[in-house]
Design a protein around this nucleic acid. Structure first.
Lengths: 228, 228
DNA sequence: TCGGAGTTTTGAACATGTTCAAGTAGTCGG
DNA sequence: CCGACTACTTGAACATGTTCAAAACTCCGA
């Protein structure tokens, strides 16, 4: 609960407490019964407010999820800090960041599917590509920029500039895999991380090989050309 | 209409006509007003049946979309045949297949977002990774297998075996990009295809370079290890 | 203290996907 | 032709996200 109230600066107007009460109740119910089975009526009742009041603070059920996403984001950023400040090698840095995300998100694995469902819709404000979630996305990319900058990697400047976003994309891919991962203790996702990170490392270092550098340049050019 | 009725073998039982009437009405309304704004009541009314009857044939609104997806699949397979039988070089083969998908799907671009939204949910039968959509997925992968097999590519056997699925994955990525592409005439998606295909081609041919082959082998190993 | 402006709260009403018990119609063995 | 079995059809009822007009509350200046 404390983590939730910490998030916003101390109550600015009357309703802040109600807002947070609704949010924490919603997150709890989402976790306990899944997103689909949690009704707005249930959230309102459990929080001791009316349905209309819940809508006064969160204009839709999806927006409650958006709030969850921001919450997750902050937890991840905090949990990752010690790794980034101690570890210097690229592989453990990236592995650590990705596995930490797994840990932070674990309680929500079951209902995460529904989250990414709505996130996949381009018109949804929850889409990871939407303007509305730019702050969260930028914050996430920033983490990967730290992964790159603080590491022992030596890369061509242009590739290094694009790399954080590419790693964020990789992260999104892993999240997609995780959402579908039904193995015990998400073993398969963990395996994916542990095996793909060293591979990325090798690939990146390969960019020094003459024949490969050309392709790498093309990749960078492609990325740049399709950016909005 | 013809394409729709062709799909299933000639009427096996009484209700087949009704089934197809409902489907074609639904697809038309989806196209005309978008998925979200098309109500089941509207579909039923327009098709001249009751709401309950629509549910007798399609157990949910999502299943109507599943039917649309199958329909699209078949159109793509047919439209792609001439390319696969004439073109021999890998780059134009793959480019042709991907751009043809764009053409076939163009009328549905607007409401495709909603489609892929539900498709992204792992528990949905519409998920491209679900058992229920395995037939459609296999059919799609098969197209990419033809792209590889009929081309001038010379690759290590294990990589060649995995390549069709990898290309299908690439296709999914492009679809995701397309869904979010708001540029006129989906120019950006077309650019993505035209630039990324030659890049893939170069990457694949690079696997002959000694230093690269090791990485390629690891990629193949990784793919295999995470398959369910 | 009073009145009003802004903020918060309420719950009934609405829209729409979905279910279901009941009805209808075609079909087949006798 | 009859009865019954299956296939099909119906529409009212239900569940739940969302809206909204009205009420309640808070705060502040006169």
């Amino acid at each position: 609960m404390a983590t939730l109230t910490d998030v916003t600066e101390s109550a600015t107007s009357r309703g802040e407490q109600t807002r947070e009460l609704i949010l924490s109740t919603a997150l709890r119910l989402f976790r306990e019964q899944g997103y689909g089975r949690t009704t707005m009526r249930a959230i309102a009742t459990e929080a001791g407010v009316s349905v209309g009041n819940a809508y006064y603070y969160y204009s839709s059920k999806e927006h409650l999820m958006q709030a969850y996403y921001d919450h997750l984001q902050e937890q991840h950023r905090d949990a990752v800090a010690p790794i980034l400040s101690t570890e210097k090698a690229f592989v453990p840095r990236l592995t650590g960041v990705l596995r930490t995300w797994l840990e932070v998100s674990a309680p929500y694995h079951e209902f995460a599917g529904t989250f990414f469902k709505t996130a996949a819709e381009p018109t949804s404000p929850l889409s990871p590509f939407s303007d509305e979630s730019r702050p969260a996305r930028d914050a996430s990319v920033k983490i990967f920029r730290q992964v790159v900058d603080g590491s022992d990697l030596k890369l061509p400047a242009d590739l290094e500039a694009e790399l954080p976003e590419l790693l964020w994309l990789m992260h999104m891919g892993i999240v997609l895999f995780w959402v579908h991962d039904k193995s015990a203790d998400v073993r398969r996702t963990k395996a994916l991380i542990d095996r793909s990170v060293p591979l990325v490392d090798r690939l990146l270092r390969l960019t020094r090989v003459p024949g490969v550098r050309g392709v790498a340049n093309d990749v960078v050019g492609l990325i740049r050309s399709i950016k909005p």
